[in-house]
Amino acid sequence: MIKRLLNNYSKKTVISILFLAILAILAFLTPVLFSFDPNSIDLSSLGEPEAPSLRHLFGTDDLGRDILLRCIYGARISLLVGIVSVSISITIGVLLGVITGYLGGLYDEIFMRIVDIFMAIPTLFLILTIQIILEPNIFNVMAVIGITSWMGVCRLVRAEVLSIKERTFVTALKARSLNPITILLKHILPHTLNPVIVAAMLGMGNAILVESVLSFLGLGVQPPHASWGNMLENSLAFMRDAPWMALIPGTFITLTVLALNFIGDDIRSIFDPKGRKNIC
């Protein structure tokens, strides 16, 4: 599997991985190695955002804080939100999907209707409501995004399990009277791995987008801590005079999500037999 990946990746995936790696290294090492303070206020430009220059590569915000440094700190939040919330949603989704797909029948029928209900709710609004009931902090953001976005993975895994358990090799395993749990874990579950990896990549991008909306609305990461979303909220008042305050964090979000989608898309096209070029 890894070999197939290594032989078929495309240029855009290499660039995407490089981009994410550099971003992650900067985000997690900067606070450890350097003593820059993203909240430190440059008194010389207080009250008046400073345009990008050699001193401040991406300019400063209204409090004279360096935008590049804040974006790097914001990356830490976004990447963390992506990883943690997707871990939560994948765990829930795979678990429920495997169980319902394996049990099948009436249980599956009822459970899928429940999933339909969750899918019919505009998730963002559900998240917003839960966020205002709970304390708006970063851990709640991760948890809430995680527990409201497992439905897609669940349906995916369920469909996969449903089709695999009808395949002849599973019948053959049952004929050898293997323990059903063993069959499920050892022989069926690994088949769902590829679509789940793809869903995880796309899910991470989505989680980062949702976090940015939440922080933008003031329901995510609270100032003075930097996140891409709350930097954008902060930029609203300075749109006309300091457009870079809005431009830079948004570009970071877009590029990060783009990189994750590129990687996910590549994995999908490599593993999807239908997407492969047919020879004859």
Binding site: L209, S212, R240, T254
Partner: peptide, 22 residues
Amino acid sequence: SFFGMAIPTFWLGLMFILLFSL
């Protein structure tokens, strides 16, 4: 398509305001 799916909608809205209105 890839850019369209990756751009946060609300930020795109802000950018349009910045460009077309301001």
